[in-house]
Design a protein around this nucleic acid. Structure first.
Lengths: 189, 189
DNA sequence: TTGCGCGGAGAACGTTCGTTCTCTACTGTA
DNA sequence: TACAGTAGAGAACGAACGTTCTCCGCGCAA
């Protein structure tokens, strides 16, 4: 038998892919079982309920998102460049063929009203992202009020791209972010 | 027996409230029946399936949104004021006690992957809103590229407010819109 | 009054789903 | 070889849901 840590990872990864592609409620635990190659009995010994698995999947997504963002901003040397790298990261994501919007927003729309654990996990991820942006804004020497504006742009780009099914929202959001940065720090600085 | 038009309206209005408050999939047709006071048999003579009812609800929401926006922008005399009125409208909406985010975004997250009819209805509403913003931007004498940026701000404010559970995203988005308007048309014009 | 058609209430049906249970096979040990 | 413990496969269970069907009562024509 594979060890507990690996089994957990297999289940979370399989559930993540299925949940993201079809929506959480449209995926049964049987489908997770089949995709992960882990018996139902085992899954329920690792997670007390589907709700708990959903939260684990969201936490996993948070890690993937954070590390993806970190990688995308590595080449940047200034805070301004790191801020704009967020939108380049979004652009690359939107172009992936299986892009279906922000999993956190989608899951919140599905279960935010009925499961506070899910709502909390989603809120936590958005809060973390907001703090990341706030740090970059401070590094750029811009007023703190700029940070939530940039976060809202990123958020809006994700839902717009998801619904329209096209990636150009990333470009529009990036252009708006540049204008806001220029206005806040003085152009071309 | 009440006439067909009234029965339809009763069902759509009841379903709208339930779907918005709890999510579409969490509401059974029995709950719609009880809330609307219309028998299941009648409901299924008015709508071929739950999917069709969902689409009707989304169309109804579109009308409510459009007329609400029109009312909110009535006092405005310039295109710039009408644009900013969008964010005041959002602010008032976010403060309503039963605000739970944009119904179109929520429903898209729930069913966009499995029902193309739902995805189309959502896309249609976002397209209409985008055109409304584009008209205002043209009236304001600003470059067309500003319109999608403002639309993304409005979109992002809605999801941010829904997830955070607080209304301040409307204020942030409005401030960003002002900055973008100033940059596009020259300040204080 | 009698018969008829229509609509409402909700029972019934078939399916799906989350969760648990049963049975079987296998591993390691003496 | 005999046995105890464990895990996998999937059957089973109870609930919920979308949809259809049955039964009953009412209004109306003759």
């Amino acid at each position: 038998m594979i060890d507990e840590k690996t089994a957990r990872e297999d289940v979370v990864r399989a559930a993540d892919e299925l949940f993201y592609a079809r929506g959480v409620q449209a995926v049964g635990m049987d489908a997770v079982r089949t995709a992960a190659g882990v018996s139902l009995k085992r899954i329920y010994s690792l997670f007390a309920s589907k709700d708990e698995l959903i939260v684990a999947v969201l936490r996993h997504r948070t890690q993937v998102w954070d590390s993806g963002l970190a990688t995308a901003s590595e080449p940047a040397t200034t805070a301004r460049e790191r801020i704009l790298a967020i939108f380049d990261f979004l652009d690359a994501w939107f172009r992936e063929p299986d892009f279906r919007g922000c999993a956190f927003i989608n899951t919140h729309g599905e279960l935010g009203a009925s499961s506070t654990a899910v709502a909390d996990a989603v809120r936590e991820q958005k809060r973390t992202f907001g703090e990341y942006v706030a740090r970059l804004v401070a590094d750029a020497g811009a007023p703190a009020a700029l940070a939530p504006q940039l976060a809202i742009l990123a958020e809006g780009a994700q839902t717009t791209a998801a619904i329209a099914g096209t990636p150009e929202a990333a470009h529009h959001a990036r252009a708006a972010a540049e204008t806001l940065l220029d206005a806040a720090t003085g152009p071309r600085r």
